[in-house]
Simulated assay, not measured.
Amino acid sequence: MTGRKKRNIVVIGGGSGLPVILRPLRDCNVEVTAIVTVADDGGSSGVIRNFMNIVPPGDIRNALVSLSLLPEDFLDIFQYRFDSSDEFFKNHALGNLIIAAMTEMSGDIFGAVQKLGRYMMISGKVYPVANVPLVLHAAFTDGSTGVGEHEITIAHKVIEKLSITTEAGKQPVPTSEVLLAINHADMIVFGPGSLYTSILPNLVIPVVGKAVKESPAKKVYIANIMTQKGETDNYTDASHIKAIYHNVSKNIIDYVLTNTAVVPEDYIDYQKWNEISTQVKVDTNEDRKLGVTPITGDFLKLRDQGAFHDGDKIVRKLLDILDNKIK
């Protein structure tokens, strides 16, 4: 409708899943804010984090690229990952180094990302959930514990409880901009992304979880297409919701979007995507018992011998919810 004020959509997560819906949302008549986890300690981001003691830049980089209006040729350069025998540059994405440089120049990751967002002409906002790198802590059901996203992921154990601290062991403090975005949101979307290492690291920050809980926004969880080995084995969509309730707060989700299109077993390269195990099953009865409205459909995109969300289909459904076409 011409002249209607743009609605605010806040997307919370990280990893490779978040850009799947950020790019199509960028082209809709909405204000988009991506709130991105800063607990990553693996790969190029982990190396930069350890060397420079700054927020890991990888998830931030992907969010900036997804919302950027610059030509694809430039974005390809920003995303370029060095294939070099040099021990420092090997496997580093150029964009990670640029974010690290700008952070060092300004002494503030939040300000650096906002400035870079202007340079990259992003349509929306990208907010690191905190100004300092955070450390993920997991208590496993076997009584053991894990510290750090990478260690928790490779442990391949069932997670009982998740928490997060600063590197000094203190409770994280999100920026005021993060809390304002949540408070002013018309819709808050969780994911798509890894439950325990992309979505929950944001929500288990107590102040963030409380702000989301108290927000009048419509809250939508995008269930994963596939389970993740050692983390969400045998999880249904309702199991994911229960994990969020257990780690954050009950009744923090209004809708769950779950794919029902069948993933062909002979298409998936399980060695290439070693975190994938089985397709997440839908349990609409349990969803409703949890106070969540299930929305099912074909949200599947098959590519690169893996199963992913179709961002365009997901965004169309999100807008239907926003426009009250789905109750």
Rank of each mutant, 00 (worst) to 15 (best):
E72G: 01
Q79P: 00
Q114E: 15
D83K: 12
L70F: 12
A93D: 03
L64H: 10
L94Q: 02
G95E: 09
L75W: 10
R81C: 06
R81L: 06
S85L: 07
M102E: 12
Q114D: 11
K90N: 13
S85E: 13
Y119T: 04
R118C: 01
E87N: 09
I109Q: 05
L97A: 05
L75T: 12
F82K: 03
H92M: 01
S66P: 12
V65Y: 01
A101M: 12
H92D: 00
K90G: 04
A100E: 11
I122Y: 02
Y119D: 02
K115W: 03
E104L: 14
L70K: 15
I109V: 15
D83R: 11
L97Q: 07
D108M: 08
I77G: 00
M105A: 15
F82W: 11
K125P: 00
F78D: 04
F89N: 07
S84M: 05
T103D: 03
K90A: 09
R81T: 12
I98L: 14
F78R: 05
F89P: 01
A101V: 05
Y80Q: 11
F88K: 04
L69N: 15
N91D: 13
R118W: 00
L69T: 15
V126G: 04
K90I: 02
D108P: 11
D86W: 09
L97P: 05
A93G: 05
L67M: 09
M121E: 15
I109A: 04
H92G: 00
Y119L: 13
S68R: 04
D83H: 10
D73S: 13
K115D: 05
I99M: 01
S106G: 07
K125D: 09
A101Q: 06
Y119G: 00
M120S: 10
T103Q: 06
F74R: 05
D76S: 14
S84N: 12
R118A: 04
L75M: 14
L97S: 06
E104N: 06
F88T: 06
L69Y: 04
E87T: 07
S123V: 00
Q79V: 02
L97E: 09
R81H: 07
M105N: 11
F82V: 03
V113L: 01
V113Y: 00
G95K: 06
S106W: 03
D76Q: 13
E72L: 08
S85Q: 10
D86N: 15
I122M: 04
I122Q: 01
M105W: 12
G117E: 01
M120Y: 11
A101H: 08
M102L: 15
F89Y: 14
G107F: 07
N91L: 02
D83N: 13
L69E: 14
I122K: 00
S106T: 14
G124M: 06
F78K: 04
E104V: 05
F82G: 02
R81Y: 05
